[in-house]
């Protein structure tokens, strides 16, 4: 299924140097699809795993690997909520704000979080430890209110639980 992909030297665009391992991972991912463009979201995630976010220079670099224009990569990067186009903290807290959590204490949980961390939704703590973001229903409604930190889902989370939950993330 893989299209022939150009062999290349290390791609450097706008001061961004695409790690050769990341480029290889993108090319491998592209092999799962009829067209290389399909690996776009995964390519963005690959960059994000290494850098924590997707720096500007990564956009044309990914475009070159996938054989598409930078505008389409940027269009994708800015569409999806889990792709970060600006720096985030070392840990990202996704707070579910959908209906079941809303009915079971989302407001109190969010208040407790913002008070404890000193930041609002969309912000990062001054020490770069946490970024706080809202998220679409986490599919943990039998554990509402729920939140997710990095790869871990917690719920039901009361304000009292926050010290224990947060201390695992330095």
């Amino acid at each position: 299924m893989m299209e022939p992909t150009p062999s290349s030297q290390t791609i450097t665009t706008d001061g961004f140097r695409l790690h050769p391992e990341d480029e290889a991972a993108m090319r491998e991912e592209a092999g799962h699809y009829e067209q290389r463009q399909a690996a776009c979201i995964e390519a963005l995630k690959i960059v994000q795993r290494r850098h924590g976010w997707v720096p500007d220079g990564a956009i044309p670099a990914i475009a070159r690997v996938l054989g598409v224009g930078p505008a389409s990569v940027e269009g994708v990067a800015t569409f999806y909520s889990l792709i970060f186009r600006q720096p985030v903290g070392r840990h990202v807290i996704l707070v579910c704000d959908s209906s079941s959590c809303f009915l079971t204490g989302f407001d109190q949980l969010l208040n407790a979080l913002t008070e404890r961390l000193g930041i609002g939704l969309g912000e990062t703590t001054a020490d770069g430890r946490f970024t706080l973001l809202p998220v679409c229903c986490l599919g943990a409604c039998d554990g509402a209110p729920a939140l997710m930190i990095d790869d871990d889902v917690y719920g039901p989370v009361g304000a009292d639980d926050l010290p224990t939950v947060l201390e695992g993330y330095s």
Partner: peptide
């Protein structure tokens, strides 16, 4: 995927699958 509820709509899902 990388978020966005609309991906669950089947034709939006196909666009997302294609990297759009």
């Amino acid at each position: 995927g990388a978020g966005r509820y609309i991906c669950g709509e089947e034709t939006a899902l196909l666009n997302s699958l294609e990297g759009k």
